[in-house]
Design a protein around this nucleic acid. Structure first.
Lengths: 224, 224
DNA sequence: TAGATTGTTAATCGATTAACAATC
DNA sequence: TAGATTGTTAATCGATTAACAATC
């Protein structure tokens, strides 16, 4: 028995794959809530993603017992509990560094706000950008990162600078106390173990697709 | 020893994780090539990504024998072979659908071109955008997708429309003969099995980071 | 030759799936 | 009650790591 749930006491860190799927479940639940549904089974919850019912139950079981045998899961209740588990039941201030094309696109991206992620400060090293206004914020020089992180209590940062300067900027983020970096630069980052990095690497994703497409297009017609 | 290598004959599709890592190796090799290195060991190759030497060798062994015992791998030779394996030894035309903030940022993104991915046609359903020029191309209506895919022989597409219309546009892509979709919309896509989808889901990545940060910040101070 | 490093096998580890008693 | 569906255990599957003979 022993209270596990919502990640307080001795709970272990869930495997990354589990957390990713739980995010998907949460999103699906929110869609269903808008549609007025109030109950859902593990089978229905996994279906849109091609995830098996046993997997859904196992993933949720990692955090506690939320379902009702014979019934399924209550949509509203499960939403609350998953939001709490993932930590998206509160606001997360974000620092955005690098105002190139991608950085400016992220500044306007609506998907973040709906998840309580808010960009609160923006940084660039281009003197022509510093002092300018973007999305209601004044661009600060990268040296201002440290103070800004402290004053906004920022834990998460979006790293949108070119590959060449990514490590250098990451170092400044770490020095300032950042705990998680979403890295859009196509470069590996070296950070202390208490800092988490997630990479968004578009070229690698495209290469993956290219490989599969190439593979499934030939393959068929060749002999052993 | 039966030619495996470079993915011609009976070669099985490599596990997704393997392909992703091979992309990283290739990028690292290219960096080393620019630095003038001509040999490298499996240990050095994996180091920047925190990948163990045994893993690097096993990943490469999936495609063939490219190394030399006691020596390591020849940088130039391995680059050629990995490019061929991944399919990035040739040009890949891309269709871009959805010219919101993200779509326009991708249009200018340099990371694609260096990998021989080229956006060759752009689409939107907004009448104010159709006919306009972006990045040297004229915006076409989404209904033109089918003909364009055929004439450009496009296998890969970037899907940057809002979540609500993502499935509908994906259906048109599939009908037009697209074989791989890089999906930026926060919505699950349902496609036939011969079409590959890779999702770029920023909110989910951020939620992952938020979870870990939250977890490592508390955790420590609570009792069993 | 001695030292380095490969490709590959065996051992370990972790993740997914199937099955089912318990429950509504 | 009968049918549905959970949480969980056991079985399967796949991926990572360690170890080492073969090779340069």
């Amino acid at each position: 028995m022993s209270s596990s749930r919502n990640g307080h006491p001795n709970a272990k860190l869930a495997p990354k794959a589990v957390v990713g799927r739980v995010s998907l479940y949460l999103r699906q639940l929110e869609t269903l809530q808008l549609q007025g549904l109030d109950k859902i089974s593990s089978r229905q919850l996994g279906e849109p993603f091609g995830i098996k019912n046993a997997q859904v139950r196992k993933d949720l079981a990692f955090f506690g017992q939320f379902g009702h045998p014979g019934i399924g899961y209550h949509v509203d209740a499960l939403i609350s509990v998953l939001r709490e588990i993932l930590g998206v039941d509160k606001d997360w201030p974000l620092a955005l560094v690098g105002l190139g094309n991608l950085g400016r696109a992220l500044l306007k991206y609506r998907g973040f706000r709906s998840r309580r992620f808010h960009i609160v400060a923006i940084f660039d090293n281009d003197p022509r950008k510093i002092g300018q206004e973007f999305g209601g914020m004044i661009v600060e020089p990268i040296e201002a990162l440290r103070k800004s992180i402290a004053s906004h209590k920022t834990s998460l940062a979006l790293l949108c600078v070119p590959a060449e300067s990514a490590q250098q900027v990451a170092d400044l983020m770490v020095a300032g106390g950042i705990r998680g970096i979403l890295n859009f630069a196509p470069a590996p980052l070296s950070v202390p173990s208490h800092v988490n990095v997630a990479a968004v690497d578009l070229s690698i994703q495209l290469e993956n697709l290219a490989y599969k497409v190439q593979k499934t297009q030939e393959g068929v017609s060749y002999g052993g």
